[in-house]
């Protein structure tokens, strides 16, 4: 058994959340503290495996002494911090963030949870009337990915997964400014002309269905995509010796999607093109096997 340096022991910090005192380790974010207290906090741009960008602002909370609301996902607790997660100000901003997004982006494919938050905060995106949106044609320029930026909430997750937080390929970045800011390859070239290596890690972190595997997109178009009929099995990638954990999503004895568990030490949810897409051979044998 190895003795490994894991850093100094963490001090505990006492804070109060909605009037309840709680002790959490120093360095914990407000979001983590909320989760310990089972306070459901909406998040869109936050993911455990990515550096917090705190851009969506749906997780904002009120902290006593702070002029403005603070993002729970990135703000670390401080001793004696008093946090309100359900004050009128908090509810107002969360509602507005959800409304502003939903009034400009197609959020239909977001997780059920997101629709739950919309209901909880009474978001009515239609009250903005005939508002500007990011609607645009779907981009299909290769056999593996589909990009539908009408669904993009600009959460930066794909950029982080393609960039410093995992893949470091930087095929995409945020381009433009303001409402015109968008996810783009260099000079908006098609993916095959970009640096993209089709690891699919951007799709793995996309919370809105803006990025989708072509196979899923095609099945959805054909009306055959049925998550209730899918079973997910964990196994190990059949290629190189790194030992990436795969989650095989199987529908009708056929792999329809491959993901990787976020909490596994080898992959942290990330794969390469072979692990992500190289599964088809196993399903093509009936045709190839001769007598």
């Amino acid at each position: 058994m190895n003795e490994v340096f894991v850093g100094l022991p963490k001090r505990m910090v006492k804070i109060s959340v909605d009037g309840t005192d709680v002790q959490v380790p120093e360095g914990t974010t407000i979001l983590e503290a909320c989760r310990r207290l089972q306070i459901d906090t909406p998040t869109l741009c936050q993911l455990e495996t990515l550096t917090p960008v705190n851009v969506c602002r749906v997780c904002v909370v009120e902290v006593e002494g702070s002029r403005v609301l603070v993002p729970a996902c990135s703000r670390k607790v401080e001793p004696e911090m008093k946090v309100l997660t359900d004050s009128e100000r908090v509810r107002h901003s969360r509602r507005l963030v959800l409304e502003l997004l939903a009034s400009s982006v197609d959020m239909a494919l977001c997780a059920q949870q997101v629709h739950g938050w919309m209901a909880r905060y009474g978001a009515k995106p239609e009250r903005f009337g005939a508002a500007a949106t990011v609607a645009q044609p779907v981009k299909i320029d290769n056999d593996l990915y589909v990009r539908d930026y009408s669904r993009c909430i600009l959460c930066y997750k794909c950029v982080e997964a393609c960039g410093v937080d995992a893949q470091n390929t930087f095929a995409i970045g945020v381009a433009g400014r303001g409402f015109d800011a968008h996810i783009s390859t260099e000079f908006t070239v098609e993916l095959p002309d970009s640096a993209c290596v089709y690891c699919g890690n951007c799709i793995g972190v996309c919370p809105t269905g803006a990025l989708m595997f072509k196979s899923e997109y095609d099945m959805r178009q054909a009306g055959t995509w049925d998550e209730s009929q899918q079973k997910v099995t964990e196994t190990v990638c059949p290629y190189c010796g790194v030992g990436c954990m795969l989650e095989l999503h199987v529908q009708d004895n056929s792999i329809v999607k491959v993901t990787s568990p976020l909490d596994h030490s080898v992959t942290a949810g990330h794969l390469c093109v072979k692990g992500r897409f190289g599964f088809q051979f196993v399903q093509q044998r009936s045709r190839e096997t001769k007598g």
């Binding site: 963030v97 502003l100 508002a131 500007a132 945020v174 303001g178 015109d180 800011a181």
Partner: peptide, 19 residues
Amino acid sequence: DESCGQCVPCRVGTVRQEE
């Protein structure tokens, strides 16, 4: 025009404000 576009309240809010 000048919103950097990073956070939702400002990116979309400035457009909705103008509208």
